[in-house]
Design a binder for these strands. Structure first.
Lengths: 181, 181
DNA sequence: ACGCAAGACTTGGATATCGAAACAATACGT
DNA sequence: ACGTATTGTTTCGATATCCAAGTCTTGCGT
């Protein structure tokens, strides 16, 4: 914020184009360095894939009124819910969203009766989220009636490529988390 | 929605656990098949990286009041804007967002004077978006004062790994676009 | 025992995004 | 030329997300 705004007033005798030239020079350096070009490319692609993946899930689950986020909660509960379910924070972490986002998500799902939310009697600070019978039933319908099982969104990628993709993504995430800390 | 709600009323003589058993069986099939497990993993990771990348950019550019999306517009214009700038739809496509989202983004940026928006005289249906002098100056300040050049978000990934990551992401996107069509 | 720091979750307000529909302006077929 | 289809952009309403602040437990230090 300190090296700017000096076009016409500060240096009266200098060439009037000096600022434009300086800007252009600096920017050229940036562009020539290809600065963060790969980062930008990754960011754009990540954003785009995220968008399309959500679109695909939303379309698959449109009849059932489920969103991609809700589906991810349900399948996480199915896979790892066990006897007592999971806590909101665990679910938020698994879904890579902010805790408050998961609260709102669970609000919606609880209002529809898909999940039950009850405070853990042993640890009254924690909350146990479990799939309700209606939730189980809807999950079953979803995997039966939608193309969830057969059709494959990532068909252009081989099994090995998917794993590689996931690994690279997770490496990048881990690195970013380290920077934060 | 047609094969449900028959626990206690419809089949009085059948075993009351039959529905629960059926649900469990179907779900077990799904889980055993590892159905879409890799897809779910990719989706979660993609979402997470997208989130963190935005956070990182927002923090880098917080002083300047720029968001990641606005930054991507600016650098796209710097790189490929040429003489006449770019159209909103091209920018939306490049940023992988819906056209209407780009309209709003450009609204904000135009209100701040970062970009100019004028209808193309040759093709009055098109709009040309260009970086204003203030936009150029702010871009220059950003690449100077922020750590945009030096610090590297994707440092845990080598150059080759980034390229590989971007390629895989773009393959997946292309495949999803084909499904749509 | 009492009080205070830490952790888990929720509330509230702001914002960015999306899809569908409205709205030009052009192009094209007859 | 005229009406229609097409394309580019915007408006509008709904929604999902985020951050910061608030509430309520737990646990620990003195």
């Amino acid at each position: 914020m300190s090296t700017s705004s000096a076009s016409a007033s500060n240096t009266p005798s200098a060439a009037p184009t000096s600022e434009a030239q300086r800007i252009e020079r600096d920017v050229k350096i940036y562009v020539a360095a290809g600065a963060n070009e790969s980062v930008q490319r990754v960011m754009t692609a990540v954003h785009g894939l995220s968008r399309r993946l959500n679109q695909w899930y939303d379309r698959q689950l449109a009849d059932l009124g489920l969103t991609a986020g809700e589906w991810s909660v349900m399948s996480k509960l199915v896979r790892d819910g066990g006897e007592c379910g999971l806590s909101p924070s665990v679910l938020a972490d698994a879904a890579n969203v902010a805790p408050s986002s998961m609260t709102h998500r669970l609000d919606r799902m609880a209002k529809r009766g898909l999940v039950s939310r009850e405070t853990d009697p042993d640890n009254r600070v924690r909350v146990r989220v479990q799939l309700s019978p209606e939730g189980w039933e809807l999950f079953r319908v979803a995997i039966q009636e939608s193309d969830m099982l057969e059709s494959d969104v990532l068909s252009p990628l081989s099994k090995a490529q998917r794993v590689r993709l996931a690994e690279l993504l997770e490496m990048a995430i881990e690195g970013l988390d380290d920077v934060d800390a």
